[in-house]
Write a protein that binds this DNA or RNA. Structure first.
Ligand code: SF4
Ligand code: SF4
Lengths: 134, 134
DNA sequence: CGAATCTAAAGCCATAATAGCCTCCTGATA
DNA sequence: TATCAGGAGGCTATTATGGCTTTAGATTCG
């Protein structure tokens, strides 16, 4: 799996939040989307920390978007939720990642890197706005 | 990770085998590529079962390619080694895979499916020949 | 021809990494 | 200050990876 469940939940939440006027708390989101509350909380926290969401504590608190939908790329969302950018394979992002340090002579690294590039640019260009307005 | 270590090992083995005249036994391959022997054996068996490799028992036995390099697609290799086709996400291959059975109204399924399609065709068209002759 | 030897085939087990989920603590608001 | 909701860490199930042993088929040599 290139994409984890955490990313799915993140995107579903963002979609819902994009059409909300006021901040929504994690419990409401959890109920609305049938997502385990505690798991979702951690995801939302990560999104808040990276600036995609803004969190409000205390009564009437919750989460709300902190950017325009067209400024939220799927790549950014996944990178932040999963802790690292989605990689097709361990060594795909950079030659240095190869454990045997033979990426320069490895026959399959070029193709891995090419595939990774395609995926990255796809995710980079795809924004929340694209998804919502379909 | 979309691609597992088993797939990496499979491809590395196939590259080596493509330039060999005679069958190579799993131990030689394991030593040559620094791959755990027992793990590699399992991978080679899977490849043999799906017709990519041909196995020879007894003395002077081993594994050899059973197809032209240009007829071996990476998609086929991965599918057979990993037991299933590499999926970008649980629900990406087909709408039916959605656990909540809401793929038809799900906002993000279309984009997942599109990404999956891109990856599939990339892997489908990439053959062992392409990799070897670089 | 027959036995010893070689190698794949198949099964089960152990460990490491990851994904997924839950509980309690901390801080802000009313 | 009482309450509401986010923050941080811990726990379990699943998967990926690798090890080990036994079985079975083929070859080679005496
Ligand atoms: S050997 Fe090649 S495929 Fe394997 S990790 Fe290194 S660069 Fe990647
Ligand atoms: S809800 Fe959408 S993204 Fe989630 S599994 Fe179903 S189709 Fe896929």
């Amino acid at each position: 799996m290139l994409i984890t469940r955490a990313s799915e939940y993140a995107i579903l939440s963002l979609i819902l939040l994009s059409s909300a006027k006021e901040p929504m708390d994690s419990e409401t989101l959890s109920r609305e989307l049938s997502i385990p509350k505690s798991f979702l909380a951690k995801i939302l926290q990560a999104l808040a920390k990276s600036g995609v969401l803004k969190s409000y504590k205390g009564a009437k608190g919750g989460f709300a978007l902190d950017k325009e939908t067209k400024d939220i790329s799927m790549l950014a969302v996944m990178s932040c939720v999963e802790g690292k950018a989605p990689a097709v394979f361990e060594c795909a992002p950079a030659e240095k990642s190869c454990p045997s340090e033979q990426a320069n002579i490895c026959s399959i690294w070029p193709f891995l890197h090419k595939l990774q590039g395609k995926i990255d640019s796809f995710l980079e260009e795809l924004t929340l706005a694209d998804i919502v307005e379909e």
